[in-house]
């Protein structure tokens, strides 16, 4: 009985000591995943996810506090990449397939400049008392301008399909 207890205790102690050594030797510094994730984020700090900026969102995503689908500007593609990175599966059907971009209805715009002050990417051009316009290529679709517009004249619309952007649809199920 005594031998048994002794032997097991001894084994436990030795193994514990060895593992302790190993843990020291193989010590890994802070989780590098947060940095990788914030690299992937749009970096526009638009705040639509509910966090102050992309860095905070990345931390929350890494710790699993928030969904990978939280970023509207990143859209489906970002969600997919993040899910791959974190090794989780997501339901892509939940995300709107087409990103929406800001469009200013020029007949209602009063040129108040509020929208271009909030735009994180300087995608809105115009001057005081002049009609503003969105440079489509620079818009992330964050919607900050829509919230800021006092005239309610900004609509979030999908990019119109033209010959250049058209691509083949999926074949009808075979």
């Amino acid at each position: 009985m005594i031998t048994a207890i002794f032997v097991l205790t001894l084994m436990g102690l030795i193994l514990g000591y060895l593992l302790g050594l190993a843990a020291k030797y193989f010590h890994v510094e802070a989780d590098p995943i947060i940095e990788e994730i914030s690299e992937l984020m749009p970096g526009t700090h638009c705040g639509q996810c509910g966090f102050a900026g992309c860095g905070q969102a990345a931390e929350a995503i890494a710790s699993g506090e928030t969904e990978v689908t939280c970023c509207p500007p990143g859209g489906k593609q970002l969600a997919e990449t993040l899910a791959d990175k974190l090794g989780i599966t997501i339901n892509l059907d939940d995300i709107a397939n087409e990103p929406l971009y800001a469009n200013i209805n020029s007949s209602e715009c009063t040129g108040c400049t509020r929208c271009y002050k909030v735009c994180p990417t300087d995608a809105i051009v115009g001057a005081n008392k002049q009609i503003h316009a969105v440079i489509n290529a620079a818009c992330t679709g964050c919607g900050a301008c829509k919230t800021a517009c006092p005239e309610n004249c900004i609509d979030m619309l999908p990019e119109p399909i033209v010959l250049e952007t058209w691509h083949w649809p999926k074949p009808i199920a075979a």
Partner: peptide, 23 residues
């Protein structure tokens, strides 16, 4: 279809890089 989607994804990625720079 797949080539179109891949090109579209690439364009989206480029757009995101562009806007990130702007921001």
């Amino acid at each position: 279809y797949a080539k179109g989607e891949v090109a579209y994804q690439k364009a989206t990625q480029q757009r995101m890089d562009h806007t990130r720079q702007l921001s």
